[in-house]
């Protein structure tokens, strides 16, 4: 591929955002960085990924963290920074890829090839999807949605100047419940093709 294409996809829990990102990666034949981003970081630096996993995509604990001369004791913050650096390096090398979350729309905002997308969903549709995919009860699904969205919002808003899900800062915001996942993917694919051929 000639021009660099970076698809940054952020999502509400239960919106199917991760599935959409994975399908887009398949259709555009691009590598995807999601939970595996830490595996990649660990492989590159020779770290034991199991030590890092429990701090992935989590906000730093405000009252249990402190910074001194640019150093932070927060494992969450240090691991987030490692991931951001990894993404910057990948983007700098000219690689095209799909990345899920990890503040990527802010971290990579200076790259021309970036297309940032935010996926939301109707509340009922999200609950149903979490019930089906995770096998949760309705109550557990509601709790999981509230918990994960709060964590993602806190994580994002701590490291970025822009607010999580604020439509003004994403190129494309879509409600995956309106068209369904497949047609949402088709729509985004068409958009990306139009946008990159521009």
């Amino acid at each position: 591929m000639g021009k660099q294409l970076i698809i940054s996809l952020s999502r509400e829990y239960g919106s199917g955002g991760h599935f959409i990102a994975a399908q887009l990666a398949k259709r555009f034949e691009l590598p995807i960085y999601d939970h595996n981003l830490l595996d990649e970081v660990a492989r590159e630096k020779g770290f034991n990924v199991q030590k890092l996993n429990k701090y992935d995509e989590l906000p730093k604990k405000k009252f249990l963290s402190r910074s001194v001369r640019g150093f932070s004791n927060s494992p969450e913050e240090n691991i987030a920074m490692m991931q951001f650096d990894f993404l910057r390096d990948k983007a700098k090398s000219g690689e095209s890829f799909v990345v899920v979350g990890r503040c990527s729309e802010s971290v990579l905002q200076d790259y021309e090839g970036l297309i940032s997308i935010f996926i939301i969903g109707d509340r009922e549709a999200k609950i149903k999807r979490v019930e089906n995919v995770r096998g949760f009860s309705r109550k557990a699904a509601e709790e999981a949605i509230a918990r994960h969205d709060k964590t993602r919002r806190d994580y994002h808003n701590h490291y970025c100047d822009i607010k999580w899900g604020d439509a003004r800062h994403y190129e494309l915001c879509m409600n995956s419940s309106k068209l369904g996942l497949e047609r949402t993917i088709d729509f985004i694919e068409t958009y990306i093709k139009e946008r990159t051929e521009k």
């Binding site: 770290f47 030590k51 890092l52 001194v68 150093f71 932070s72 004791n73 494992p75 240090n78 691991i79």
Partner: peptide, 13 residues
């Protein structure tokens, strides 16, 4: 803070 940060950056949070 500095010591734990150096450790975390080296893959030992």
């Amino acid at each position: 803070v500095v010591g734990t940060s150096v450790a975390a950056k080296a893959g030992h949070p």
